[in-house]
Amino acid sequence: MTTSVKAAIEVRALRKEFPVRDKGIFGPRGVKRAVDGLDLDVPRGRITGLLGLNGAGKTTTIKTVATLLRPTSGRVTVDGLDTVTDARAVRRRINLIAGGERMVYTRMTGRENLWYFGQLYDVPKKELRPRIDDLLALVGLTDVADTMVERYSRGMTQRLAIARGLVNRPAYLLLDEPTLGLDAPIARDLRRVVARLAEEGTGVLLTSHYLAEVEELCGHVYVISAGRHLAAGSPAELKAATGTHRTIRLTVTTPSPATAAVATRFGADLELLPTGAELITLRHPDDMAGPLAAAIVEAGGSIGGLEIAEASLEDAILALADGSREAATV
C-alpha cells in the first residue's frame, strides 16, 4: 500500500499556549491559549487568507507554520514534513514576510542583504546573482541596490524585506501583514506580485488588516476568533453565509401604486423623498438591481437613479465576530 503526501500546508488540531505571569515576575503563573484546536489547509497555487480581530491567533498560527513556535499539541506539516521534527527541510520550502518586523540588516546594502540571505538558504552561486537582480527589479529597488538600508525609507525597507522573503523561491509564502506601512502604489504592486506567485504555483498564507486586500487576493479565507475556527470559505461564500447583503437604492421619479406594489413584492423599503420622488431600498444577497429596475419600468415608473453598494468582506467578518461574541456571552 502506498500513501500519497498532499502538497500543502496542513494544520491539524493546533493548540498553542504561552506561559504568562499576571503580576510581575513573582506573580502566579498562568497560561494564555493563543490557538485552540485549529485546522487549516494551504494548498499550492492558492492564496489562503487567515482573518480575525486583534488577538485572534493569526500571528501565532503563522509563526508556528514558519517553525518559529512549537505547537503545544496538534501538528503542522508542509508537504508532509513536520514543522518540529523536520524543521530544516520545512524551512527550505517556506519563507516568512512579516510587515511589523524589519527582517533586514540596516548597515548593509539591499544587494548585500539579499546575497547574505541567499547564503543562508544555500542558493547556488550561479543562480544567486541574477536572482538578486530580478528581485531588486521586482520590488523597485534596482536604483538603490548599493545604498545602505539605513538610508532607505520605511516603505523601501519593507520592499527589501519582501525581496528577502522570495530569495529562496519558496513553495509556500507566509505573509503576516505584508503591506503594513506601505504606500498605496507599492502595496498594489505587492498584491500583483503575490497574485502572480500564486498563479505560478506558490501556496500563500496571508494575514492582513486590510480586508479589501484579502477580498481581492484570497481564494479561500479562514476566520478565527480567540484561536478557534469560526468560518471558512471563499469571500463570496463568507458574505453569503453571514447574510451580509448588497444594498440597492433605486429612485423612482414618477411613483405610483403600481411601482409601490413592485417594491413590496421584492421586499424592499419605500421612502417618499421631499422632491416627490420615491426611494426604494432593497437589501439582498443576490444581484437584484436588474430585475427590480425592469419591473419598475414595466409598472410605468421612471428611474431617476440607481446605486448599488456591494456587501464587503469586512461586513462579513464583523458579523462573524459579533456572532462569536454573542455566543461567548450566552
Partner: peptide
C-alpha cells in the same frame, strides 16, 4: 534587538556555521 532574529531563524542555515 535589531529585528532580524525571525528572518535568521526561519532560514534553514544551521546555527553552528553561523
Amino acid at each position: 534587538r535589531q529585528g532580524t532574529l525571525g528572518a535568521l531563524l526561519v532560514a534553514p542555515a544551521g546555527r553552528f556555521p553561523y
